[in-house]
Design a protein around this nucleic acid. Structure first.
Lengths: 133, 133
DNA sequence: CTGACTGCAAACGTTTTGCACGGTA
DNA sequence: TACCGTGCAAAACGTTTGCAGTCAG
């Protein structure tokens, strides 16, 4: 568990207890949606407002502290921003996990075929996890 | 321009003029969002309801006739379901285009590292198109 | 002390629903 | 003729905004 208070300050965000809790919760769960985060926050902050959760999530996404993960047929989840990685989604149990893979092979293909300059690669894989099979 | 009336019937959907027009419009534009589709439909069906557009889109997505394309910071677009392909998005002009690439190289990597059975691969590439560069 | 953050309530845009009528098969 | 699809209006849903009070720096 890192010192997220200091980290927030570097991003010019005030280190409120609500924000520290949010970040710790996101780190703990890996990926979380707004509603689950809100429910979890209520345990420590019974009067917290859903608007506060949205405002903080948006503030942290805007400055790159958090990243959005949009998954087909699921509510948008959030994760701490980390090195580029793909997302594996189990269509049976709904599990979402990160997987770090080398994408150079498809990037080369895309550059050659399209002439685009690549900035970002977003990869989602739907399948069945080993437990569900 | 194919006979989409017959095709709809195969999917157990009635071939109404509104639906035929929708499909032709989606085929023509390649990708379109609900609002643009609604505006376009009004030219031929001045009294069409936005609810009808949603109902038809949902019906056609549910049985696989259409596919959703969710793009970061853009409204969800829809396309006719076709062979698996990646989406290229120009972050300057907002252009969205299909690109057919070989994804076997990353699939092998994922299977080996995760043990998942892969059902579907969703790839989005953000970058700058040749025109904008 | 000051601006940023919080909680609350209201507003907002998008999508869905219920219903009566009309059109397709 | 029997449903399915349409258009309309209202409801539901997720998210954002404005404001007054509070807290972190």
């Amino acid at each position: 568990m890192k010192d997220y208070g200091a980290l927030l300050k570097k991003y010019h965000l005030k280190a409120t207890p609500q924000r520290i809790y949010m970040i710790n919760e996101i780190e703990k769960k890996g990926h979380i949606n707004i509603d689950d985060l809100y429910e979890s926050l209520k345990k420590s902050f019974p009067y917290i407002s859903l608007a506060t959760v949205y405002k903080n999530i948006n503030a942290m996404v805007e400055n790159g502290f958090l990243s959005e993960v949009k998954i087909p047929k699921m509510k948008t989840k959030y994760e701490l921003t980390k090195n580029e990685h793909a997302h594996l989604i189990c269509t049976k149990c709904g599990a979402l996990e990160d997987i770090f893979i080398d994408t150079q092979c498809i990037k080369d293909d895309i550059i050659q075929k399209s002439g685009y300059t690549i900035e970002k690669t977003l990869i989602k894989i739907e399948g069945i996890c080993p437990k569900c099979r």
